[in-house]
Nucleic acid binder design. Structure first.
Length: 349
DNA sequence: AAGTAATGCAACCGCGCCGCC
DNA sequence: CGGCGGCGCGGTTGCATTACT
């Protein structure tokens, strides 16, 4: 139903755009806006279909596009969001300002997908290819908890993406999309959430923070059978059966399969291992920029034993404590944590 | 240096959704 | 209410470039 015939017309040019065509399109849109894409090519004097013009504008000519290499921070965000959303590139793109869905899609297909595969992670499910783990923590509740939150977060992100599309805030985006997202999520989804404590911080932060916590190694589940990690890597290791991290990370897949854990949880572990590579850490510190919620995922800045404020704050139902986590825990870092979370609370309220 | 394979990216294509009539 | 037009999304293709033999 409603198939657009615009590209079936004969005489319309296809293939790579010439600088002249770009110039025409740019000039026209700058002067008139794009309006109806179907009518645009004729008005702009282009022998192209409207679809092609739209694509060219969105993916290449738009002034607010950042081109060039993806930062590690962006990579991380893409992976996290992909684990939650799957191939919903447009939704993912709403969280990566200045990146187009097409660019993200291409980057995923050409770089990240392969990289995850090499690590023994299924890029579709974000599980280890062996599906080796029952539960990262050994506690099914934790997996279910995180899974539930991941589902919720997925729905929230979709709603957020829709909101962004609908509100057409392209020209003047809010300084932090999370604010709008929180409003949407809070109004529509709170009924399915686990009990929300007073001064409720949105659960989405917990999911992503959990992720980030694995990455920094400072996150810990509220579970009795886990010891508090004393080093960043300990956390990941604690979550896993013996030796899994190394086995999987180098592509050895001789791990017994228990099944049952949700893909998000697996993604946590694997990415934790991945991002603990020293080679990434240096780069990580150079990529803490941007202004959306992803930036709340502050990295442990190059020091494994340095407390990360983001990870040390109390959480609603995941990381109750972080006693000694990451080797931090001083009064000053406690204050930092407090301030950090106050800022977030201010942001989302 | 030439040929081939691999990689990266821009662009196309088809489908589904949504709003309008 | 159903058909139509338009747009947006995700998958795929094809070409250019780079790496390897």
């Amino acid at each position: 139903m409603g198939r657009s015939p615009c590209c079936d017309k004969v005489g319309l040019k296809k293939g790579p755009w010439t600088p002249e065509e770009d110039q025409k399109l740019l000039a026209y849109i700058e002067q008139h806006g794009h309006g109806s894409w179907r009518a645009l090519p004729a008005k702009a004097g282009l022998q192209r279909c409207g679809k092609s013009c739209r694509l060219r504008w969105i993916n290449y000519l738009r002034p607010d596009i950042k081109r060039g290499k993806f930062s590690l921070h962006e990579e991380q965000t893409i992976i996290q969001l992909h684990a939650l959303l799957g191939n919903r590139w447009s939704a993912i793109a709403t969280h990566l300002p200045k990146r187009t869905d097409n660019e993200i899609k291409n980057y995923w297909n050409t770089h990240l997908k392969k990289r995850l595969s090499k690590m023994g992670i299924d890029p579709v499910t974000h599980k280890p290819k062996t599906d080796a783990l029952g539960s990262a923590t050994g506690n099914p509740k934790d997996a279910a908890n995180l899974s539930h939150m991941a589902q919720w977060e997925s729905a929230r992100l979709e709603a957020e993406a829709r909101l962004v599309r609908e509100s057409k805030l392209v020209s003047n985006p809010p300084p932090n999309p999370h604010i709008a997202a929180t409003a949407v999520a809070g109004s529509s989804s709170s009924s399915v959430m686990a009990p929300v404590p007073p001064a409720c911080r949105p659960q989405c932060l917990d999911v992503l923070k959990a992720w980030q916590g694995v990455v920094t190694g400072l996150f810990t589940f509220n579970t009795d059978n886990l010891q508090s990690p004393t080093t960043p890597l300990n956390f990941v290791e604690n979550m896993l059966p013996n030796g899994l991290i190394n086995d999987n990370f180098v592509g050895n897949s001789s791990v017994p399969c228990d099944g049952g854990v949700e893909h998000v949880t697996m993604g946590l572990h694997e990415m934790g291992a991945w991002f603990h590579q020293d080679s990434y850490k240096e780069e990580i510190n150079m990529n803490m920029e941007g202004n959306n919620y992803s930036d709340m995922m502050v990295w442990d800045s190059g020091n494994d034993h340095q407390q990360n404020p983001a990870m040390a704050a109390p959480s609603d139902n995941l990381n109750e404590t972080n006693s000694g986590g990451g080797g931090g825990g001083s009064n000053s870092s406690f204050e930092e944590n407090k301030n950090y979370w106050n800022n977030i609370l201010n942001l989302v309220s």
